[in-house]
Amino acid sequence: MSESLDLRLALAETELENPVLPYLRQDRIPHIWCPGCGIGSVVTSFAEAVRRSKLDRDKIAVVSGIGCTGRVAGYVDFDSMHTTHGRAIPVATGLHLANPDLKVVVFSGDGDLTGIGGNHFIHAARRNMNLTVICVNNFTYGMTGGQVTPTTPSGANASTTPYGNYEYPFSLPFLADAAGATYIARWTSLHSRNVTQSIEEALKHKGFSFVEVISPCTTLYLRRNRLGDGVDTLQYYQDNSILKHGADTRETAIDFQGKMLVGKFVERQKPTYLDAVNATCAKLIGDDYQLYGKTPPEKEAEKKAAAKGKKKAAK
């Protein structure tokens, strides 16, 4: 599979085809996203990250909820699942637990992940479920007409808050950090190369990894707030994003058209959900218990270690 893919990629590039296309379901392109919507750029970064990570394509599954970003599952050429609104993380959790060899990626929007499915988000982070969550945060529910989401900055206009949003918004890195996520990064859709790198790191990270990408919604958020078009917004990102790796996530709140911190905020190691299950069962059952859900390299390393141990004992 991977060999034929390499050949396909080589051919594709010589036929002067966009290198992202082999990762997309080309019969579905052009996509439905509006001109200037940042979701497409994030998909490009994702495809590039997958290519660089050299992961087996058959071992990657993409799960999305509903919404503009939720369409990603239908456009990428991986095993993918388009679930009900807000339920991308539960489905991904099930997928991961049933087949721990899979690398499950959740690709969804801010409203879907932290509004409708906020509960699932914090609990997956709390359990340190081995998932990669990519959240395209455009501060609004795009597909349903620009309603206010938990991340809409105070004062911003949305179709349900026509006189300005009077709620206090979530800061997603802070939420994820408080809930226990073990990899947290935030970028804007302007920082394509950083997004690619963060997604690549997130794919390789063991545990709950969360990448937030701030992105323009040209049709609803920008138009309702009279913020110009996508180019103006990318310019705003360029002028107002402050790079601070390892920043305290308590400082990451975003005010309406204010400064925003970007960077990789958190990276730590912690036993994942499956590790914890295994540890408990091993304690209860003892040596007969077969560990569940080790990745093939881990299994091999364990076998080697066991063989070494036996040799030592024989000596």
Partner: peptide, 15 residues
């Protein structure tokens, strides 16, 4: 290839 990275529609790439 900066244009290719930014393009939301997979319509352009540089090499």
């Amino acid at each position: 290839d900066l244009c290719g990275l930014f393009c939301p529609d997979f319509a352009i790439f540089g090499a």
